[in-house]
Design a protein around this nucleic acid. Structure first.
Lengths: 155, 155
DNA sequence: TAGATTTGTGGGTAATAATGGGTTATTACT
DNA sequence: AGTAATAACCCATTATTACCCACAAATCTA
């Protein structure tokens, strides 16, 4: 994973052309790693968008296809969900990507609205600010979570 | 960990640009260890800021990400909360770091106010002076705490 | 104790980042 | 093929940050 990772939370606007800025720190990391393309897709569980730098996407894709059994209905359904809403995009000269109408709809992101971008170490998430707040309120870290943390060695 | 560690308590100002000085003794240790970058994040339990020199952050991060599965919803939620408030910063030529508005808010630190910096051996904490005093008054170590501590090896 | 160095703090300026919009090229549609 | 819609490209403006210099207070040194 190296020393540079995607962390933090950023607020950006969505313009009339569905363009969203990628944080400059993230762009620097991508340049350093020679990545100029990302794959955006529906977040695995909820109403947000996942942004995978291409190498991460390839890792994910290969992991899934190699362990998947096409005769298994659940596997097929999962694979469909995973790829159906995935689209490749390259950053424009200003460092922005263009969201698709379908993903914006799924994530509740509005034209000329705002988004929150969250770093997830080796990929990113794009949220509608209200959806994010709602999600945070519904999933606070519990004491049980902290107990789990304590069981990790060296922390 | 070597012979040099972060200890002690220091009082510094926060200027209008959200800059906070790092104690020169700490800076010397960092130079000695070739560290020019830290990650600041929300303190695990309370209202203060944690400052991890980069190597410490990497250790933490890898411990957490290695025990984590992306398809697990709880894991994803935990990872999000872990990274969300973490932001990388490099010291400026005067040896200061810039705090983010969100972390200042979470820690109750005010523009043009003061902070206390506390050494935690291999990382540091930044507190609002009032919050720190309150915390000290409200959480003296009890006998029960010491009993728990006795269960730790090597102490 | 006087001078020299380090440390903490403040502020100006140049560089970078974020955002908006116009224009041309590409694709899609009938 | 001609037209409409869309996306890529370019430039302009504003906001923010990084970089630099300056100075005062504190500490060290001889």
């Amino acid at each position: 994973m190296g020393y540079s990772d995607y962390t933090g939370e950023f607020k950006y606007s969505v313009d009339a052309k569905h363009r969203v800025n990628i944080p400059s720190r993230y762009r620097k990391i991508m340049i350093e790693k020679n990545v100029s393309e990302v794959v955006i897709s529906k977040g695995l569980d909820s109403n947000h968008i996942d942004v995978y730098p291409l190498p991460k996407w390839i890792t994910l894709r290969d992991k899934i296809t190699s362990s998947m059994q096409l005769v298994n209905r659940t596997h097929r359904n999962f694979l469909r969900q995973f790829t159906q809403n995935a689209s490749h995009c390259t950053l424009d000269s200003q460092g922005r990507i263009m969201l698709t109408p379908k993903l914006m709809e799924l994530a509740g992101i509005k034209d000329n609205g705002n988004v929150m971008i969250i770093g997830m170490i080796d990929f990113m998430e794009i949220w509608d600010p209200d959806e994010l707040k709602k999600h945070e309120e519904n999933t606070p870290l519990t004491d049980k979570d902290f107990e789990k943390l304590e069981q990790l060695p060296l922390i």
